[in-house]
Design a protein around this nucleic acid. Sequence first.
RNA 1: AGCGGGGUAGGGUAGUCAGGAGAUCCCGUCGGGCUCAUAACCCGAAGAUCGAUGGUUCGAAUCCAUCCCCCGCUACCA
Length: 663
Amino acid sequence: MREPPHVVTCGLPYANGPAHIGHLRTYVPADLYVRVLRKLGENPVFVCGSDTHGTPIVVNAESLKITPKELVERYHKYFDETFRKLGVIFDNYGSTDSDFNHRRTQAITEALIDRGYVYPKLIELAYCPACKIFLPDRYVDGTCPYCGAPARGDECDQGCGRHLEPGEIRDPLCNVCGSKAEFRVQEHYFFKLSAFKDFLLEFLEGLKGTSNARNYALGWVKGELKDWCITRNLDWGVKFPGRDDLVVYVWVDAPIGYIASTEEWAAREGRDWEEYWKGENARITHFIGSDIVYHHCIFWPAMLKGAGYALPSTIIASGMVKIDEKTFSKSRGHVVWVDEYLDNGFHPDLLRYYLASYTSHTKELNFSWKVFQEKCNNELLAILGNFAYRTLLFAFKNFGKIPDGKIEEEVISKIKETIGLVKASIDEYEPKRLVDSVMALANFGNSYFQSRKPWELVKEDKEACGEVIKNAIQIVKALAILLEPVMPSKMETLWEQLGMKGDIHEIPITEALKVIESGSELSKPMILFDRVEDETIERMQDILQQRIEGCEESVEKSDLITYDQFEKLDIRAGRVVEAEAVKGSKKLIRIMVDLGEDKPRQILAGIAGLYTPDELLEKEIIVLANLEPAKIFGIESKGMLLAAGDGVLLVPDREVKIGDKIR
RNA sequence: AGCGGGGUAGGGUAGUCAGGAGAUCCCGUCGGGCUCAUAACCCGAAGAUCGAUGGUUCGAAUCCAUCCCCCGCUACCA
């Protein structure tokens, strides 16, 4: 029986900036998934490519004084190389600016027009009379029609966060020259998304993959589906058929890039791409980040359905990445760049391991250098690396080759069990479960080694010792095969150390059970995982910290403070337990305030004009508790009373607990 | 508000869809052992009223109901 054609894709990286570990949260598990499938005898086509269109790229290119094409070619090359460095190997890494994609996008758009799913409509759009251009998306600033906050053309980024359709924004200003834009009527094209509601409900019910993708999309489809404006006034992009002045919206041609990338691969390999995208039994698996569920579970299947293509069978959405428990943020510096990781000498497989083993694929993944170090040293080095090294070194020193002996039933069944768990983890799209299962086998290996005491046996009964070592080597072999999808390069090294023939990347999973041949020569093993030292981690933490501080400085220039900054203020309720005028001063009163701490605090307040010390006694007041201590009139003050106007004290409106934090 | 996702030992994290003995694994703590191995390894112990309350059940972390808290959707995004 022939295996059904299966294409696996990854969300396309936007060719407008460098790769960060957030990207990898999707790409590494996808690569791992494909590698395991291949070990199980399947042969999916794995494609991806650069997303190259849209206004942010045009805007960015202008600010860099280069053409959009130059910009995207630069990043396209960069992403292609970066993925290879990380062992994420696509069968084809295309570009949405390729001829393949221009052609395919136009063909699909034409198909949608022919089938009556696209209609023209006159809408009022911002037009800059000075620049003489219509202003799409981020070319225009203005006011949100829903909440009144400042907004960009395509979304209310500072207010309610709504997506804005072209023409919705009020008081538009041209982003290029800053002059006031006017509204002009123009014809644009809309995709009848509303016509696909019933189809989408049924489609989503049958969609495989992670529940976060399906549930989230179902929520949207059950609500109101609006028709979707699919054209923009730009030069850069895929021309809308029959209109030289319009390009299709970037979210039209981006997913079509999956098809185009498959076509590019098929053309090179002499294969038929239509089997993969139009065939009746075609299987399509998308790996995406949970931020683009809407596009992949709603727009995309509707487009495919409308144009007569095969539909996605599986959509796997990964959770987001946090850095040190903080929401991932480039502008706040909460980001770790892939180049920074690699340039500091870390092996890519360590990061692959971290991403695969941290948590369930759909949950938020926290990255911290500290945890990175722990995982490397305690799991990779101490458990896996140590087991492989002690086994191979012992074998090399005492036998020089793989010794004779029978593989114990317990060892075979443990490996068998692990293979079963690996298969199950792939069926559930849970790389962590895969790693946990295989690491349990490594643990078993250490335990086995320890309990059989080969270092004693070697003196008494060399033959029995050889058998133990052979069993241990069999476990190492299984580990190498089973972990290749997670750490392809490190496991290749281990494979070589075992003296195994053949390419580990092509060795099927069943080979893990095949008894290793006795007698083949062993060379001196090398250490597989080096210790990650404290200084190294401190250095990386410093890099991160400095970036965050640099970003905070630029934020401080604005009058607004962030919530994080506000949170730093320790404002608490307290009670005055002592109060007396400060001798020699007109306005100062020295008070002792109970803030629910061990002892009351001394605070100086300049309120003698409005209050007498007696009035203050026993009063409940509000205090900024973590103000830097200062000497006033020679007396230390550790905090500040909150008062308004000339010094009218703020007091709690109702009874509060002393020491309660103000929020 | 709505929708989506969470709340499990000191920290992190599995198990929840398909309900069953002592609730997983990693770090940390404590005690022992080993010495082949990168101060690595092994064995054991302490530590969790599984967010709260109520219900279903012989049996609930798991199913049902209600409630509380955190996060995302909602800058830059995979």
